[in-house]
Amino acid sequence: MTGKQEDIRVLVVDDQILIRAGVAALLRAAPGMEVVGEAADGEEAVVLAAAHRPDVVLMDIRMPGMSGIAATERILEGAADPAPRVLVLTTFDLDEYVYAALRAGAAGFLLKDAGPQRLLAAVTAVAGGDTLFAPTVTRRLIEAFARRQPPGTGPGRPAGALEVLTGREREVLRLTGRGLSNAGIADELVISEATVKTHLNRAMAKLGLCSRAQAVVAAYESGLVVPGSPG
Rank of each mutant, 00 (worst) to 15 (best):
V35R: 10
V36M: 02
E77Q: 15
G177H: 10
A25Q: 15
A205H: 10
S181Y: 04
A101K: 01
I19W: 00
D15S: 12
T72W: 04
V13P: 01
G37Y: 08
M1P: 11
G160P: 08
A21Y: 02
Q214K: 03
A219H: 08
L165H: 13
A146R: 10
V56M: 08
R174A: 15
L120W: 07
A205M: 01
V47W: 05
S222E: 04
G231V: 01
G78L: 12
R62A: 07
L209T: 06
V172F: 05
T198I: 04
R148D: 12
A144N: 13
L173H: 10
L224W: 07
R85I: 01
R174T: 02
L110D: 11
L132H: 13
L207R: 01
L120V: 11
D41C: 01
L58K: 09
D130E: 14
Q214H: 04
A218C: 07
S222N: 06
H199V: 02
A219K: 09
N201H: 09
E193D: 15
A183N: 06
P54I: 03
D113G: 00
A144Y: 12
D14Y: 05
L27I: 09
R74G: 00
E77V: 10
A125H: 07
M204I: 00
A107M: 05
D187Q: 15
D113C: 00
L48F: 06
A79T: 12
V196E: 13
E44W: 00
D14N: 12
D14H: 07
G179A: 05
R28G: 02
R62I: 03
A213G: 11
L94H: 14
E44K: 14
G105W: 04
G156L: 11
V10T: 11
T2G: 12
V126C: 04
V88C: 03
I142S: 03
P158R: 08
D41R: 02
E188I: 00
I142Y: 05
R9I: 04
L94R: 15
V225K: 08
I19D: 01
V10N: 07
A25R: 15
P116S: 03
L175C: 10
E77A: 15
G128L: 02
A203G: 15
V35W: 07
E188D: 11
Q149F: 09
L175N: 10
L209H: 07
G179E: 08
A40F: 00
L175I: 11
L58D: 09
E193H: 11
E73R: 15
L110V: 08
M33T: 03
R118Y: 00
A25M: 14
A122I: 03
P227F: 07
R168K: 14
R140D: 13
R170L: 12
A159E: 15
A100P: 00
R118W: 00
D41Y: 01
L26V: 11
V36K: 03
T138N: 10
A183L: 15
P155C: 00
A219L: 06
A40V: 14
G231C: 04
V172S: 06
D130F: 13
V217I: 01
S211Q: 02
R168L: 13
A194C: 01
L76Q: 05
V35E: 10
L89R: 05
G115Q: 06
